[in-house]
Design a protein around this nucleic acid. Structure first.
Lengths: 230, 230
DNA sequence: GGTAAACCCCAAATCTTTTAAGGTTTTTCT
DNA sequence: AGAAAAACCTTAAAAGATTTGGGGTTTACC
């Protein structure tokens, strides 16, 4: 603690978790300079899942964080890691439900956004390319007083989802997702608990839903992307 | 036209449709005073469905509006009227797809918000109690450069919907909606194309989905409201 | 040009939803 | 409190969807 806060000031505690040291410093620098009513902003940082987890667990019995910023990808994606920001978000929700959670993600892909909005229901979601001092400040203020805050690109994805009348069940979503990452139709059986025949049926059905009958898988995937499903 | 615009200025044309004369004046007053890059803002108004329709139709062959603000309820709701803002929005989308559409609604109820977001997919949605000079200005700027703009209460409804894993079909939604406006179960058959037996089945199913088994309809409706369906 | 994958069609089995008919419980009104 | 209406439940048959296996044809790719 560098200096005592003035009496009249409330302290706004923020935890930021991102595995890039430099990015963290940037966030800390910006966040602590936000002028916000009579709040004194204090930013704590963590650069890994474990560190983040510890800080959140410590906070349970001391001062709870007002806002927790979480990077969705907490580790280099090539090294297989069991945990990511989404899990940390779920954990934080359980341990300290009063802390607001804001996700930061480099991908604006709808599949992940939709999944996080469902599993964690964060108070904010920011696509990294939308993040700058101005949007960070807006996020902090909005999240404290009237959440949620969704950054511009996140809103774009949300809009697509909301304007959609097509509803897909888990199996359909999985099929689309696996096709989109290049899984071959014959290998889908390994990931989805259905016979190959059913999978073919569902693919046909999906293509008719998305208006890409008799076209190839790429057309289906593009249509599904446009509509916000992947 | 009161005075010529400067050469360097682009004109931003706005149409606002609301059946309250005074509200219209307020919007016009605020909107035309927005300072926005080198834009000169020009607000046209209409106070009924027909007037709005005419202005939109005229605009097709002259200068298209950049933004159209539409009140959802265009007539006193007790006098039966065939048209409302939603219809006008659908019409505008067809005639002038390049114009951005922003809805203004006094009800923040999720059923209507969801329905409008699907049928028109507007570039903005503002709940009236969220509207003030600041939010109007933000709406205009956001809608022009990076739509969509959703006001705080609208975002609240959207968040509920997005964080939800329950998916309902049209019949389920209609059942919930009619129950919520007080329609008796025995009268539901008149509005929904199903047998009374099926409707009872679906009500049972809905109650189990929303965790209100063996409870009465009020409990179901409250749960559905909490989850953003009505 | 041959092979693997993708795609299509059919019919049986299974699962889900709808429907009607009859009953019990709860609510509402007098 | 008692009658009537509405809500709710149960059952079983019918209709509709989905799944599955077994066959085949077409398309893509080396």
């Amino acid at each position: 603690m560098e200096h005592l806060t003035e009496n009249s000031m409330k302290t706004l505690r923020i935890l930021a978790v991102d595995d890039h040291e430099m990015t963290m410093l940037g966030y800390k620098f910006i966040l602590e300079r936000i002028v916000f009513d009579d709040h004194n902003i204090l930013v704590d940082t963590a650069t890994s899942y474990e560190m983040g987890k510890e800080k959140i667990e410590e906070s349970v019995h001391s001062f709870k964080y007002d806002i927790i910023f979480l990077d969705v990808q907490l580790f280099p994606p090539n090294e297989e890691q069991p945990h990511n920001g989404e899990d940390l978000g779920v954990l934080a929700r359980e341990l300290v439900p009063e802390s607001k959670i804001v996700f930061m993600s480099s991908f604006s892909d709808n599949y992940r956004i939709n999944s996080i909005l469902q599993s964690v229901d964060p108070d904010g979601y920011m696509v990294k390319t939308d993040i700058d001092p101005k949007s960070l400040e807006e996020a902090v203020k909005t999240v404290v007083y009237q959440p949620p805050y969704y950054s511009s690109k996140a809103l774009g994805a949300i809009r697509k989802k909301m304007s959609n009348d097509i509803t897909l069940d888990e199996n359909d979503k999985k099929i689309l997702y696996h096709l989109s990452i290049g899984t071959k139709t014959k290998d889908l059986e390994k990931h989805i608990d259905l016979s190959s025949s059913s999978i073919e049926n569902r693919k046909r059905h999906l293509k008719s839903l998305f208006g890409t009958e008799k076209e190839n898988d790429l057309a289906l995937i593009l249509a599904a992307k446009n509509r916000g499903f992947i």
